[in-house]
Design a protein around this nucleic acid. Sequence first.
RNA 1: GCCCCCGUAGCCCAACGGCAGAGGCAGGCGCCUUAAAAGCGCUGGAGUGCGGGUUCGAUUCCCGUCGGGGGCACCA
Length: 855
Amino acid sequence: MTQQIEAGDGVRADGSGADTGRPGEDRPEDDRYDVQAIQARWLPVWDELAAFRSGRPDDPRPRRYVLDMFPYPSGDLHMGHAEAYALGDVVARYWVQRGHNVLHPIGWDAFGLPAENAAIKRGLDPREWTYENIAQQKASMRRYACSFDWDRLLRTCDPEYYRWNQWLFLRLHEKGLAYRRPSQVNWCPSCQTVLANEQVVAGLCERCDSPVTKKKLTQWYFRITDYADRLLEDMKQLEGAWPDKVLTMQRNWIGRSTGADVEFAIEDRPEPVTVYTTRPDTLFGATFFVVAPDSDLAAELAARAPVHVQAQFARYLELVRATSEIDRLSTEREKSGIFLHRYAINPVNGERLPIYAADYVLADYGHGAIMAVPAHDQRDLDFARTFDLPVRVVVDVRDEDDKPLPDPADTGIATAGDGVLVNSGPLDGLRKAEAIERIIEILSADGRAAAKVNYRLRDWLISRQRYWGTPIPIVHCDTCGEVRVPDDRLPVELPPAEGLELKPKGTSPLGGAGDWVETTCPTCGGPARRDTDTMDTFVDSSWYFLRYLSPDRDDVPFDVEQARRWMPVDQYVGGVTHAILHLLYSRFFTKVLHDLGFVDFTEPFTRLLNQGMVIMNGSAMSKSRGNLVRLSDQLTEHGVDAIRLTMAFAGPPEDDIDWADVSPAGSARFLARAWRLAGDVTSSPGADVATGDAALRAATHRTVHEVTDLIEGFRFNVAVARVMELVNTTRKAIDTGCGGADPAVREAVAAVAVMLSLFAPYTAEDMWARLGHAPGVALAGWPAVDELLLVEETVTCVVQVAGKVRDRLEVPPSVGEEALRELALASPAVQRALGDRGVRTVVVRAPRLVNVVPG
RNA sequence: GCCCCCGUAGCCCAACGGCAGAGGCAGGCGCCUUAAAAGCGCUGGAGUGCGGGUUCGAUUCCCGUCGGGGGCACCA
């Protein structure tokens, strides 16, 4: 190895020329690629270089915000983190190479149950467990060569952070967007806490998979439903920039429907009851009426029912409450309910409709009561058939051959489609859409109906009966009621865990902190009690991307001016598991902050990349399954770069990576091959590339050109393949072509080093040093593409006869259609293939293809 | 039940409607080695799940079907 080590041309982050860690001096003089030695060599150098600081006020580079979802500090980093951060790093490092000032921060989503559970198990303060894990993860991230700006760390469990959760809570409270109300809530008996709707997955607790039950509690909510239409509408901004899948999930979750509120008089009740329906056109087909058994209305109606019915109702209600969410949602389940011996009056025809209480009607959607039209609604039909209620067809629905569909009463299949109204008085002869419009018009004339939009989305329940979270900054005073803690008394700090019973018992552990709970009312000065609930940790993560902009400000949650500069996030990277929860809440917070005048945008994340999971042998890794792959083992065995490269090369980023299908050893071999190229470059830095081997130069420039597009399109696996190709080409050039002294080889290897710096920063840095540059390949700059070198001198034109390849012609790229046609027809191979058949047409796609179609 | 995505070599994956293979893994053959492993070099291998259609031409577009994955699913 003979190349000169001289002052390189790497751009120094600090602008100085300090020559740290002269790479050549202590480097072993053999040609062995020693992963561990390379890692050990560069890590301290990088610390000094601090290439990824983004906070210099005079930085002239264009700004770009690349954000990785921050981790929960549950032990050390695992394979999933390794994938996520490898991919996010490719994007962040790419934009740095393109000359941008990239904000790429990291922090910890540090409040939450695992810390508390660990604390309970070991009798410690959750703080200890949390901060230890954070320290460990931080060290691992550093070793993993994540290009984070370490100056902007945040931890949501720091009072300096959660203080601003409280501050934001107060702003929402002032606007009426945070409120407390009693309701039936999702309750996880195992976690002993309430759950938001979003945290109940198929009737199970998202966290521990226990069946969720219902409980009546007074809880804090954020009024996210006020923003339902905007959360839906603004998704237009995200189309094409977020995965369709995520947008679809959010749309489903918000669940907008249009219909009408219709008033039904109730016998022996002065006030009418309003129901929501999406099919007001079928009013004439209503044959009964259903209320949710756990609604106030049901209780009231039952209270004035015959005595034996009251008893039945009480029993039924008990049964319903005992039914777990998962059973309730079972499609197989037969409809249940009881007749309350009360009647509603159909506003369109005065018919008496028997009122049932049945649990297929939900208390917290619409008005908790429905009109039932069994002919045209499957659920109503199922109920009608179970309880032997009449079925009346009012829409003539036809099949594709315009034949009327059979009577639902006979088939048991409701006809929900479009058709012409029948048996419906003034609506007869109208189609569905017209009938909906008409009936609303008729009934709204005397206020008995109104068009209405409804959402599946519910308000966000944020109270948690657990210790390790943000205290809700409200004081309850007997005289003043609910009082906000004034801003200047924030944060309301969590009391020490010592002495508190953290074990879940259904009420907040903070209730046990007597000195902490007992306080004075900020308004009247009298004795008062602090609210003892803590906030859902999704509050913490709903705005953390703003805190990164000014993590040290102690007078505001974030610097508005910095937000104007950096936000919205240009690229967000994270798992699809947060498709609904975190992303929906962050979008909501952003809109609230917009309305409060703190930010001037309405969507926080411009582009979203969802990476898949790392699995093993076809299933998710778990200790119990025995297929756990430890990241630390992989890093020890193959090195950081090989693992990062494997993550990027495995396939499209959104696909799962089955670790059994990929080859970190293969990645390491490739890296060694690439690294050795640098040792075979014998020209000096600054050699005139213009004189270099043209073919290799063309390959280099074409590769850079393609890789650029591939990276921007998140096609990292293909980008890596292109770099591999260039490495192979360069190897051949050195061994059997122009040789290592050719400046084109230096150019190619330098391009490989810079491109590899996105995926394999240690290897790239070492290559860079071997090429004779000062440290800092990360700041070397993306290779410029010489467009002239992309122009091919000749291209291969494929000549087909009847679609089969019969000949190839080398032609100039500018060849004319007519000339190419002549050339192709003149080909002996073509004539042979044609035989005595004539030529019908000749399709010419100059310069690549000619297809001769025989007669 | 409804909606979406994906089926290319033993495996992971590429291929503006135009030569089915870029890259990797595994396999085979060499080199190195006393030998083996490692390492290095070279290399065979599929007609694109299946059936139709559109087209001069289909892995690519359309319809159907099978298989895999995901989302939604008493929201009136």
